[in-house]
Structure formats: C-alpha cells, structure tokens
Amino acid sequence: MVLLKLLLSIDGIGPHKIFSLLNYFKSFDNILEADLYSLLKVDGININLSQKLLNAKSKYESIKNKVENELNKLSKINARIITYWDNDYPELLKKIYYPPLIIYTKGSFTEQDKYSLAVVGTRQPTTYGKIQTEKIVHELVEKNITIVSGLARGIDTIAHKSALNSNGRTIAVIGSGLDVVYPPENYKLFNEITEKGVIITEYELGTKPDAQNFPRRNRIISGLSLGTLVIETKIDGGAMQTAAYAIDQNREVFAIPGNINVKQAEGPNKLIQRGEAKLITNAEDILQELEIKLKPLTGKNIQKPSVELTLFEEKLLQVIGTEAKHIDEIALLSSMSTSDCLVNLLTLEFKGLIKQLPGKMFVLAD
C-alpha cells in the first residue's frame, strides 16, 4: 500500500505506467530498488519519469506515516482501502480502461454484486421519470440485481431508495471522501447503504465534492455494472457521460424514451436515436438483453451454421466463443495476422454470424 501510494504521488505516473513497471519488475519493492538504467528499459518510462522515481525514495517515510494515519481514520468510521490487486476488488471494475488502483469503501461486497446495473439520470426528474425509476428498480431488485448509482439528487437518490425499499442491494459511487456526505440531505441514505450495500470512492478522506470529481466518478459507476440505464437527462447531463463511459467499456446501455417536448428526455431520446442505447420499457427488456451475462457460463457449443464457411472463418468462430474478444486476442488465439483476421471477420459479419462492438471487439451474433 505504501509503495503504491508513493508511485501515485509522482506526477506523470498513473495506472498504465504502474502496470508497465510491475510487468517489468514483478513487484513494488523491485521498482523502488531499480536503478536509472533499468527504469529506462520500461515501456513509457523516459528519463524525466525515471529521475522522479529515483527521487521519490526520499518521500517513503512521509508517505508511510500518511498511510498509517489514513488507515487509523478509516478504521474509526468502519471503512477500508481496497487495491486493484486485492481479492475483493470488483471483477467488473478491473476490466475497464482506467481502473482506480485504490478504492475507499464503506460496507461489504457480496457475490450478488457481480450482477449489477447502473441507474442514472437528472437531478430534476419529472413525475414520469420518478415513477419509471421506482418501477424498474423494484423489478430488477426482485431478480437479485444490485443497483449502482451516484448518490446525487434526483434519479440517483430515487434509484438507491427504491432498491433499499425493495429489500435489495445498492452501491453508491461518490465524488468526495467517505467522510464528506454529499448532498448533505442524503446523510441517512448514505448510512443505510453502508448497511445493505457499499459506498465507494477513489478520493481520500476529506476530499470535497468538487465539480471535476464527478466525471471521473462516472466511469466507476458504469465500470461496476453489466449495463447502464439512463432514465432522464439533458443532452449535456452527467448521465450522458456515464453512458459514454459504458460504451467505451463495452457495456450495454439502455434508455427509457421520453416526451420530445421535455428537456429531461433529450438525453435518452438522443441515445436511442443514435443507436447507442437500447430502448426499454420495463426491467424484462434489460434482463433479456443481459441474459448470457447474468448466467455464469459453463461452456456453450457453437452450432455449425447453415451457410458455407472457409476453414479460417470456422476457426475464428471457435476462437470468439461465447464472450466478446478484442481483435488482438483473436489474432493471437487463431495464430493469424491482424489484417487476415479483420478480412475474415468482416465476411462473418456480412453472413450475420458475428457482430462488431466498440473498441474493435467482436462477439457472436444473437
């Protein structure tokens, strides 16, 4: 923990650089003990960063004292730190592009939380938005789906409360420290969530809910979830950022259509219009779309299609299997060049056997 905090305190060192360092040196201790020559061999580590890493050793004791103080404060409020390498770090969150290497949590994760759905929207919902949020969240909770949201006013608060009122689990991702409840009127709700769910943040104790914190928070909301449901939001609302993150993370996006004359319906309607979100009217629409992800797979045989396939196409179908894979992984598993893979994948897509997802990901067609 101390060495991780030490690395994160260095300007220019983020998750990707830390992963590169660990990949080369195999442990945090080895990174700290590395010399300039060895550091320069690491991908993405230039002379400037190497020098910063060497100079950071002098901060070890102060960082250690800071961590010990932080852990004592967290213990007093019954909270804890989880790092990316800990066993109870959320599996879904590990798979996003920029996972937080440290999360502060209050409450406990359960097995059920692997099957989570984000529900997000405006701070000023219409009566229609409130009713739909309560209805759909209740239906999802009945199917043991954990509800993830951001504890903000409006749709977020309604989603959390509806989950708790239905005796379900909910996770709140906040844009402040665990000791700073925002908005303040959600203090009681905050404590209820810690009893029947989890509060998560990547921000240290004492961090105020500054505006710049919330876009970063939104990537965690979508990252913890199999999909994101947008209820109501303006076209430039924070929920649209969460939807954009979900798309980048190769997660499903759902939206409830709204009145075209209402500002709060602009976001969901635009997502549907652009084909970025699936139009849903009830929880069953979501559950059907996520059916495969909601049922742990023990293996699924790929039935031989009725159309004629080349040996290369058959091989690619077997490689893709039942879960979406990136083009680089497909090329590696099939022992084919990336260009050859793309040509054959395009043919398979024309034949309706696979579909391409954002980020050069490919999956079997439904």
Rank of each mutant, 00 (worst) to 15 (best):
K5Y: 09
L8C: 08
I13D: 02
K17H: 06
L21N: 00
Y24E: 09
N46Q: 12
L49Y: 01
K57C: 10
K59I: 13
V67M: 08
V67L: 13
N72F: 04
S75V: 15
S75A: 15
I81C: 03
D86A: 08
Y89F: 10
P90W: 04
K95F: 15
L101F: 09
L101K: 05
T110G: 07
P125N: 08
K130Q: 13
E142S: 13
S166R: 07
N167Q: 10
D179P: 03
L189A: 11
L189Y: 02
T194K: 06
G197T: 03
Y203C: 07
T207R: 05
P209T: 06
P215D: 09
G223C: 04
L224D: 00
G238R: 00
E252V: 03
I256G: 02
Q264E: 14
K278P: 04
E284S: 13
L290E: 01
E291P: 05
K293T: 06
K295G: 05
L297C: 13
Q303L: 14
K304T: 13
V307G: 02
F312G: 11
F312D: 14
E314M: 11
K315Y: 08
L316V: 07
E329N: 09
I330A: 04
L332N: 11
L333H: 08
T338V: 14
C341I: 02
Q356K: 14
L357W: 02
